[in-house]
Design a protein around this nucleic acid. Sequence first.
DNA 1: CATAGCTTTCATTTTTTATTGAAGGTTCTG
DNA 2: CAGAACCTTCAATAAAAAATGAAAGCTATG
Lengths: 173, 173
Amino acid sequence: MTTTYMQFDEAKEKFIQAWGTLGTKWGINRTMAQVHALLLVSPDALSATEIMEQLNISRGNANMNLRALIDWGLIMKELKPGDRKEYFFAEKDIWKMSKLILIQRKKKELEPIMRVLEELKGEMTQNNSQEAAMHQTITDLHDFSQHADQVVEKVIQSDLNWLQEKFLKQFLK
Amino acid sequence: MTTTYMQFDEAKEKFIQAWGTLGTKWGINRTMAQVHALLLVSPDALSATEIMEQLNISRGNANMNLRALIDWGLIMKELKPGDRKEYFFAEKDIWKMSKLILIQRKKKELEPIMRVLEELKGEMTQNNSQEAAMHQTITDLHDFSQHADQVVEKVIQSDLNWLQEKFLKQFLK
DNA sequence: CATAGCTTTCATTTTTTATTGAAGGTTCTG
DNA sequence: CAGAACCTTCAATAAAAAATGAAAGCTATG
């Protein structure tokens, strides 16, 4: 093994570990983030077995998290002719990636809030000032969530590419 | 107890429970979200003891989460003359509240990513195409994070009206 | 300066979440 | 259609996170 390869492996290892740690900070479990990081920096698609071995995780764990990443749309399966194994590779366009993550966060964080607030608002009475004040708080929260939801929706549906915009600015300045 | 009050208490209870459950979905622990919910719908400031009793939590737990909410800026202390207890009340302006939450999320989610990516980018070599590709992936992630950071920063530093009007327009164009 | 009335801390326990790995599926191949 | 080569499931286990509560720390007051 050459020095060059050693350095690549070191940087790769460091990136995977760091991504795993960071993942936990935004509600993604460590393994899922590590699998994603591994595939992000792997030029070729990897099999479940290769992933398990590189990350030292069990087959079940690898399978579960690969499945979750596919659900999120962050990775895809690939079949190689004459091979029964499934190979996995990551979406590498960071803009697309961030859009996919936004969709999941909206589903997980925003939609349940809106559902609960709507339900509460519909059910509760306003027979005195205390109830009216609480109704107002819930209405405010709901209006805010609705606004946030609309913003996120626009971002998701928009074709605006931040990276491209940044690129353009470089030429313009 | 009158029917009216029963309904208020029911709605309040439901809101607190729901907010607690939802909190876990965005990386806030259940108790912290519940304490926040309780103070959000309480017209008057409450003491630690009142909070413990209403939520059935221990004194230590109440104290820890009250401190955390104060750190976030979501609640404040109040002292009543002739009373040594501390009373707590919530920031009730939803826009201010959301700004405070944004600040925390940026700190927790965005800043550590930027730090790690910068470090990695600085340290790694690019002696072959494999290394160069990985360097590019990390650079893309870093550029993206920087852009996201700038957007969040602008929102935080802006007037709240700006948030309502301009932020949306930025994505609608 | 002693103590009553609060608040904070932290080692222990409880709860929640993630991981393992063996058993059971499924699909291809000869 | 048997068996090899994968993939999936899930009950058991391990790890991580949150909660408890008793003890220690403050601080205002007589």
